[in-house]
Amino acid sequence: MSSKATILAGIRAAKPGPRPLPTLPPDPPPAPEEWEEAFRTVLAASKTTFVEAGELAAYVAATGAETVVSTLPGLEGNLDVTAIDDPLQLAGVDLAILPARIGVAENGALWVSEAECVHRVLPFITQHLILVLDRELLVGTMHQAYRRVQIDATGFGVWIAGPSKTADIEQSLVIGAHGARSLVVCLR
């Protein structure tokens, strides 16, 4: 018998009787202002900063980043990520600016899929990351978020809720473990 058959037979012999699936909570009533406030508060707590939409271009210029990748329509970088074959070539990216698909008020998570980042490693390998989200794409809870996003629409998608961090040395918070050293969010 193959291991698959052995495992499945073992499960069938051992599993408990049927248990129903519970009903999940409904979407919370729309509260755009409260959601935005909660979204900003929780992201600020995870060391994320904000830039206003009108100031985004100036902010990017002022960072002095040498290698900039942008997939945000209307904002040009100086490295075309679609022209790159090997993700290793992104090792020198200083700043990436990507649109996000959805934002979650309760935890500050922003959905970025392969469609936005082109190379999956981009939001991680870049030294700094800017995510741009339309205000109307904010939702209240993760339950609502998973109803809005089709997680298998692309081969890869990720919730990003701050800059890369670790507390593995004596529980001291350090920002910039392996992924982006900073996250800036622009709501527009």
Partner: peptide
């Protein structure tokens, strides 16, 4: 005690 991990990655197809 975090509202969510910083990265929650969904892998569906090979790159």
């Amino acid at each position: 005690g975090q509202p969510i991990t910083i990265y929650t990655s969904h892998h569906h197809r090979p790159k």
